[in-house]
Structures are given as structure tokens and as C-alpha cells.
């Protein structure tokens, strides 16, 4: 009778040890800074996305472990909210409003133009990795639409021509000069 071979199943107590350092640090710091908050998961996810630009799915086990939640719970939350992204975005995310007030002043044709100009559909990232296009349902700029937002900068009364100018200015590296927001004070 030959002995049955014993198979050891490695039980990993702490997940996330094999994460890229930047991701692991982002998660741990976000958790440590917000752990004491009531209902801390959303603030933690925001902190991670603010830092990495997205929430890599491979970080979910570590987030869950740190908060004593199941991975399913964290996955459920990340996927429920449109703002949290599970794919890395382009250098800039363009949030284009497609709600009614903007529709009333030409948002539908602006949307078609933007998709054509960037060569992508909503949620897509341009081939050069520069832009990600996202729909947004109201930026609260409803009397001065169509509106879009790039990096917390809001732009009103957008037209296809102004959209092209914006992209051209960005390509020329002049976005900071064209920036129009006091929000720029935010670090």
C-alpha cells in the first residue's frame, strides 16, 4: 500500500502581499486614515481612487481583509457606483453631461462629436492613453450647458468647436493656462 501523498494547501493569512507596492501602500494608507469613520468603505474607496486613478480589482481582497468584510461586499460596492472605476483611466477623464438640461441645448450632437473626435465610445480610453470619456448625469451647470468637466474643471456652453479647441489646447500642453477654475487651489 503506497502512502497517499499529502498535499499542503497554502493558506494565505494576509492577502495583498503580492500587490504592486504603490497599490498596497495606497490601500493601507487609505484604510488607516479612514478606519475610525462610521461607514468607512466609501471614503476609503475614494481615497484609493484619488491616489491611483482607479481601484484595481486585485486590491479588493486586501481592502476586504482590512475592514473585516467579504470580498463580495467590497466588489458589490465598487461595482455599484458609476464613479469608481476598475480600469485605469487615460491621463484625463472627460465627464460629458448627457442629462435633459444639456440635451435641450445640444448635448446629443456634442456627444456624437466628442466620440468621433476622440475615436472612442463612453467608458473608452483613446489609443494614445490621453483621454477617457465618461457620461455624467448632471454637473449642476444646467442654465449654461452643454457642460463637461475635466479634472474638477467645469466648462459651460460647450460647442463642438470649443471642444476641439479644448483638446487642441491640451495637446499643446496649454491646459493649465486655459484653466478657468478656482478649484485649482486644491492640492
Amino acid at each position: 500500500m503506497s502512502e497517499r501523498k499529502r498535499v499542503t494547501i497554502p493558506i494565505r493569512v494576509e492577502p495583498g502581499t503580492d500587490l504592486p507596492a504603490a497599490e498596497r501602500t495606497a490601500v493601507l494608507e487609505a484604510v488607516n486614515q479612514n478606519r475610525a469613520l462610521e461607514g468607512s468603505l466609501l471614503p476609503i474607496l475614494h481615497a484609493i481612487q484619488d491616489r491611483l486613478g482607479w481601484i484595481p480589482p486585485r486590491t479588493l481582497p486586501l481592502i476586504a481583509y482590512e475592514l473585516n468584510l467579504t470580498r463580495a461586499e467590497v466588489h458589490g460596492v465598487v461595482t455599484f457606483y458609476h464613479y469608481f472605476r476598475q480600469h485605469p483611466p487615460g491621463k484625463q477623464v472627460i465627464y460629458l453631461c448627457r442629462a435633459e438640461a444639456c440635451q435641450a441645448v445640444g448635448a446629443v450632437s456634442l456627444e456624437a462629436h466628442a466620440k468621433r473626435a476622440l475615436g472612442i465610445d463612453f467608458h473608452g480610453t483613446s489609443g494614445d492613453g490621453r483621454y477617457t470619456l465618461e457620461p455624467v448625469y448632471c454637473l449642476g451647470n444646467c442654465a449654461s450647458g452643454p457642460s463637461l468637466m475635466i479634472d474638477r474643471e467645469l466648462y459651460g456652453r460647450m460647442t463642438p468647436e470649443r471642444f476641439d479647441d479644448l483638446i487642441a489646447a491640451d495637446a499643446a500642453g496649454a491646459t493649465s493656462a486655459a484653466a478657468t477654475s478656482a478649484g485649482a487651489t486644491r492640492a
Partner: peptide, 11 residues
């Protein structure tokens, strides 16, 4: 410093 004014060039 309000968003609509900024979106129209207030800054």
C-alpha cells in the same frame, strides 16, 4: 468662485 461662473471664465 462659484462653478457656473468659473465654467464661463470667472477665474
Amino acid at each position: 468662485r462659484e462653478a457656473t461662473a468659473l465654467s464661463l471664465g470667472a477665474q
